[in-house]
Amino acid sequence: MNASASTKRLILLVDDDTLLLQFLAEVLSHAGYETDIAASAAEAIRKIEVREPDLALLDISMPGMSGLELARHLQENTGVAFMFLSGSADGESARQAAQFGAVGFLLKPIDAARLMPAFEAGLARADEIRQLRRTEINLNAALSAGRETSLAVGLLMGRYHADRNTAFEVLRDHARSSRRKINEVADQLLAAEEMLNALHTGFASRIKTK
């Protein structure tokens, strides 16, 4: 992902090491990202309440609220994706990062050559998660809006052996391309299926009488 080629992405850096924060902010700024820094979890929470970053880098070990505790807060109260930063290479920190749903993991001391690839991979994963969340929200909204949409999604799942999200996305995209509401397309699909079933019954009865 080339940050300079599009709207700048905001990265929040959270660590009690001010020199490391300055180094990370400088590297990311040169790469075209917008950065914000916080020296504690409490400061990070205040900044996130004002503006949610595209990605947060959290030091696991900090005085007061740890990075793990901050990660739990982010998961429960925000949509912010996060990476972990740790000075421990014993494997336990990496396992904790995975358990907490981190999109990336960096070890101290920071290897400058690996820094940007790690951030770009983390941002890509964060974008995937946000898209999945948006799809799920849109899907739930559509399904709760009418029985027709729910039945149509189920019909597409069965006919094309698709998962629920894919079935909904195909139905939604067709509605958009035809400039109609999704429930209208769903209703038409169900009516067509009902007609096909009726015709199938008619054909079956004629075959039996021959």
Rank of each mutant, 00 (worst) to 15 (best):
D111R: 05
A142S: 11
S150C: 04
T135M: 02
P117S: 09
M116C: 12
R125C: 03
K181T: 08
T135D: 09
H174L: 14
N138Y: 00
M116F: 10
S144P: 03
F168K: 05
F168V: 07
R133Y: 02
P117Y: 03
V170L: 12
R180S: 13
A121K: 09
A118F: 01
R176D: 13
N140M: 09
I182T: 13
H161K: 15
G146Q: 07
S150P: 02
D173Q: 14
A162W: 12
R147P: 09
S177F: 04
P109C: 06
G122D: 06
R176W: 00
S178R: 13
L143T: 14
L156H: 09
N140T: 10
E169I: 13
R180Q: 15
I182A: 05
R125G: 04
Q131M: 08
E120V: 12
A141Y: 04
E184L: 09
L156F: 04
A145K: 11
Y160S: 08
L132Y: 05
S178K: 12
F119W: 08
Q131R: 14
L171G: 11
N165Q: 11
N140W: 00
R179Q: 15
G122F: 00
G146N: 10
D163W: 00
L155N: 10
G158W: 00
S177P: 00
L156W: 03
N183A: 15
R179K: 14
M116E: 14
R133G: 07
T166G: 01
A145S: 15
A141I: 10
A167Q: 03
E184G: 03
I182C: 08
L151G: 08
E120K: 12
V170I: 15
T166S: 06
L143D: 07
A141T: 14
G146I: 02
D163G: 10
R159V: 13
L156Q: 08
L132T: 11
T149H: 02
H161T: 12
I110T: 12
V153S: 04
T166K: 06
A112H: 11
A118C: 07
I110D: 10
A142Y: 05
A175E: 05
R114I: 00
E120M: 05
N165L: 00
T166Y: 02
A112D: 14
L155Y: 12
G122R: 02
L115K: 10
L143C: 14
A167P: 06
E120Y: 01
R130G: 09
A142E: 06
N165W: 00
R125L: 11
P109H: 03
L151I: 08
S177W: 01
G146H: 07
I182Y: 02
P117V: 07
D127S: 12
G146A: 10
E120P: 06
E120F: 01
A126G: 10
A126N: 09
L151E: 15
T149E: 07
A142Q: 09
A152K: 07
R172S: 14
S178G: 10
N140D: 09
E169Q: 14
D173E: 12
T149Y: 00
R134V: 11
A175D: 04
R147K: 12
R130N: 08
R179D: 15
